[in-house]
């Protein structure tokens, strides 16, 4: 009877829907109700419990591959964005550094002191972005400075520093810092 329960649990039924009755006799199994047997939803059961079809395997593989690709892409994108943010902040600091130097130059129009218009201040200034590096991933940048007098009366000028930096050879970005400055008192 134990075998009968197992078979019943597997869906072996008689053609009228009754669970077949099997008894153990002499170490073998005899089927008491001699009727036409078939496994209910046999194909589906075998496919679901025993093995997968090729189509199912390919589908599952494709879904797994898409998921893995998504995870890898997400990691890559997160790393890319964090590196970009660090580079951008470092570029901003480089531009600020140049601004601080230029803004310090004396400018007293009434006395003819015009150090701030010294051409040395507006030379292209190659630098490296100051961020953690490991030998090969140094990010270089160049500061371009322009000093423009916007008004003679009242006298004031605008100092602009463009820090141009390349990111992984993919693209070039520019961080711009500008200030308005009046003459020395």
């Amino acid at each position: 009877m134990r075998t009968a329960w197992i078979l019943a649990a597997r869906g072996l039924r008689s053609c009228d829907g009754r669970v077949i009755a099997i008894t153990a006799k002499g170490g073998g199994c005899l089927i008491e109700s001699c009727m036409k047997f078939y496994a209910l939803d046999r194909k589906r059961k075998v496919a679901g419990a025993g093995a997968f079809t090729l189509a199912e395997v390919i589908m599952a593989g494709a879904i797994t591959a898409v998921l893995c690709a998504g995870i890898v892409d997400t990691y890559t994108l997160a790393s890319y964005k964090s590196q970009f943010a660090a580079c951008s902040l470092a570029a901003n600091m480089q531009a600020m550094k140049k601004i601080e130097q230029v803004i310090f130059a004396s400018w007293v129009p009434s006395y003819g002191i015009t150090n701030i218009f010294n051409p040395a201040l507006t030379n292209a200034d190659p630098e490296n972005l100051e961020m953690p590096v490991a030998i090969t991933n140094v990010v270089s940048c160049t500061n371009y400075t322009t000093i423009t007098q916007l008004s003679a009366n009242p006298p004031y000028l605008m100092i602009t520093v463009n820090c141009v930096w390349g990111f992984n050879g993919l693209a070039t970005y520019t961080n711009t810092v500008a200030v308005l400055r009046g003459p020395n008192l």
């Binding site: 600091m93 600020m96 550094k97 601080e100 130097q101 803004i103 310090f104 100051e130 961020m131 953690p132 590096v133 490991a134 030998i135």
Partner: peptide, 14 residues
Amino acid sequence: GSPVDFYQINTKIA
């Protein structure tokens, strides 16, 4: 040999 082998801050303030 470390993930970072060089890091410095070099700035100017007026």
